[in-house]
């Protein structure tokens, strides 16, 4: 290789290496809070036995369920797939998971969240950051 070309390679990797590593670190820095384990479509949780409340909005049905130790669970039934590709589910501003294809999705609330009714359920377009639906379960 021509010495001039070797020098160009060296400079590219000296500068590029630093920039890539900084960018890599920045991308990790801005990582969103992880979605709770088991809350991705395909890993459905079993339903809690007792239904406390039900509401319907468009093609979506919402149920508040109660399990052992007074823990709560939100169940969302989608009749059709959502128009938005990435729909996040929040309960009292805490991210619970995402919706997937049509079907039933369940989100178990933490001890703290279970003890804080009423429950404001928000469906948010995760790409455009727009709230699609808001519903309150008692």
């Amino acid at each position: 290789m021509v010495p001039e070309l070797r020098k160009r390679h060296r400079r590219i990797w000296q500068i590029g290496g630093v920039l890539l590593c900084l960018g890599f670190a920045a991308a990790i820095w801005v990582l969103p809070k992880p979605v709770p384990a088991g809350q991705w479509p395909g890993n459905e949780l079993p339903p809690f036995p007792k239904v406390l409340a039900s509401k319907t909005k468009g093609n979506l049905s919402f149920q508040l369920r109660q399990g052992a130790n007074d823990l709560k669970q939100i169940e969302i039934t989608q009749q059709r797939v959502m128009e938005q590709t990435f729909v996040q589910v929040f309960c009292n501003n805490a991210l619970q998971g995402v919706l997937g294809p049509a079907g039933v999705r369940r989100f178990s609330l933490s001890d703290t969240l279970s003890a804080e009714p009423p429950y404001l359920i928000e469906l948010v377009d995760g790409i455009n950051h727009k709230t699609i639906h808001q519903i309150v379960l008692p």
Partner: peptide, 13 residues
Amino acid sequence: VFHVMLGVVQLEQ
């Protein structure tokens, strides 16, 4: 590198 880091990594963490 950024395609992966700002794509699948942000989505799935």
